[in-house]
Simulated assay, not measured.
Amino acid sequence: MTQKMVQESDRFQDPIEQHPGYAETESKIAIWGHPLHAMSVAFPVALTFCAFGADALYWLSGEPFWAQAALWAAGTAFLFGLAAGATGTMELLMVPGIRIRAPAWTHFVIAVLLLSLLGANWGYRLTGYEAAVLPYGILLSGFNVIVVIATGWHGGKLVFDYRLGTSKGS
């Protein structure tokens, strides 16, 4: 490379990459090297889809069982989401290489939005689960599915592209 190209590449270095904790991305919230956040997010994701599916089945069949199933799925999605959110927040705040990256904070903000929506979905159903399904319950569940897809995709990018919150192994 020419001297000019070397000077230009030095000039365009990312200052975040120069931070002392930038390379420190290994999970600190783990059991025997298995990151708790990565293990716990599967439950609220699956239950969010279950709530939407139960709403759709109630809409198609009119069977009260599906409205009650949606209530339980929405509630457990919210409660498991709180657990997943707690582990993710601890990970974000405790690991310097995660905390310094903007995409980690974007994932955090979207996940907090999702938790708010999951709580609203559950709370809306507590006053009467059958009456809550149509039309607003199923719309809220459908929107939750969209937000959980966005949150999960963004979280997956953090793990697979940036290797954040993973275990380096022994």
Rank of each mutant, 00 (worst) to 15 (best):
V95A: 04
E26W: 10
I98H: 12
A150C: 08
G142L: 01
S167V: 06
S9V: 11
D14A: 07
H19P: 02
V159M: 10
E17T: 06
I149N: 01
L113P: 00
M94T: 15
I149K: 04
A54D: 08
I16F: 09
G119R: 07
L60R: 09
W105F: 04
A51N: 09
G155I: 00
W105H: 14
P135H: 11
A132S: 11
G165W: 14
H34A: 04
A83W: 14
S9M: 11
Y136Q: 09
H154S: 10
F49L: 05
T25W: 14
P44V: 10
L140Q: 11
L139C: 08
I29N: 08
D55G: 06
L113N: 03
G53R: 02
A77P: 08
E26A: 08
L117M: 12
K28I: 12
L79R: 09
D55R: 02
G152K: 00
L57N: 11
L139V: 09
I110V: 13
K157E: 14
F49P: 00
F49D: 02
L113K: 00
A38M: 14
D161V: 15
K28A: 11
A73K: 03
F78D: 13
F65E: 08
T166W: 12
M39W: 15
A132H: 07
L114P: 04
L82R: 08
Y129E: 09
G128W: 11
